[in-house]
């Protein structure tokens, strides 16, 4: 193998060298395009507020200052948002696994009485739905509007995760295990909990991580169903600061309006950092799980 590689390298033609040159140039440019905005947010968040307002920060931080972080971290709403997001993410992952993994396993079994009907029942929501308004009215009718439950119970079923786990159970868990479990006198439930679940740890990890990131980053459900600020997650707090520009009025009570305006741009950058840090730090370490998940999910089943 190694020999083959060196042989190929010797044979590299002029044309191929130019080709390689172009490829690596494009790669470097792409990395700059992706990384520069992220880098810029970091340096802007630790720069002097006046320099940020005037657009003077470009390639390195200007006049180091932690004023933005100090002001932001004193804000109570940030911590309420964080607390709620952590709660919704933890409970959300719990219900998501509890609901979808058993369903994926059940649908992976063959020769189930009524199997065709059941499969249709789970497939239809992928193609048709009531839409936003009937769904919203339904949630109100159940009395779930403005309660924490709406964030992790009603929409815990994900057809996509069910299919991913079903594919995993079909392809990675040998049918012989079921035969031997039966000989040992285990029923379906015993087989599922004692034998299948321990073997399914990789897929459980993938789904849990995927769902956690999705839940952490989402704002749509909360925008529609949570009106009470005490219940709103972090993303709605970030929205108030970044999109609705509420920094000046809500956060800096008592200070002069000019002072508030002076810090408002800076606080936006620090909010981005504080809001994204957990996911960003985690991602490089769990990347392989995510990639694996994409592969399982892309298999047609």
């Amino acid at each position: 193998m190694k020999q083959a590689k060196t042989a190929r390298r010797i044979k590299k033609s002029r044309e191929d060298k130019i080709f390689d040159g172009i490829v690596y140039t494009i790669i470097i440019i792409l990395m700059i395009i992706v990384l520069y905005p992220l880098y810029f947010v970091v340096i802007a968040s630790i720069s002097d507020p006046n320099a940020v307002n005037l657009g003077e920060v470009m390639f390195w931080p200007k006049g180091l200052s932690l004023e933005g972080y100090e002001t932001l971290l004193q804000n109570e709403e940030l911590w309420i948002g964080y607390r709620n997001t952590v709660l919704y993410t933890v409970c959300g992952v719990g219900t998501c696994l509890l609901v979808n993994i058993p369903a994926g396993f059940a649908l992976s079994r063959k020769n189930i009485y009524g199997g065709k009907l059941i499969r249709a029942y789970y497939m239809i929501p992928m193609f048709f739905g009531g839409g936003l308004i009937p769904t919203y009215i339904n949630i109100r009718n159940f009395g779930l509007y403005d309660t924490i439950w709406v964030m992790f119970v009603p929409f815990a079923v994900s057809i996509y995760y069910i299919i991913v786990s079903r594919t995993y159970f079909r392809t990675s868990i040998p049918e012989e295990l079921w035969d031997s479990a039966q000989i040992d006198g285990a029923g379906t439930l015993g087989y599922f909990f004692k034998i299948v679940l321990p073997l399914a740890k990789p897929i459980i990890a993938v789904i849990a991580l995927w769902f956690a990131v999705q839940q952490w980053n989402s704002y749509f459900g909360a925008l529609i169903y949570l009106h009470d600020k005490e219940l709103q997650p972090l993303q709605l707090f970030i929205r108030r600061i970044l999109i609705q520009n509420q920094t000046a009025s809500s956060m800096l009570s008592g200070t002069a309006a000019a002072e508030a305006r002076r810090l408002s741009e800076l606080i936006k950058y620090t909010t981005i950092i504080v809001g994204s840090l957990p996911v960003m730090c985690l991602y490089p370490f769990v990347q392989k799980y995510f990639n694996k998940g994409i592969m399982v999910g892309s298999l047609k089943g």
Partner: peptide, 17 residues
Amino acid sequence: LLLPSFVLLLLFIYIPM
């Protein structure tokens, strides 16, 4: 094993349908 997802789909997806 199908029951939890079945009920949630019924209440929150099929009723709105």
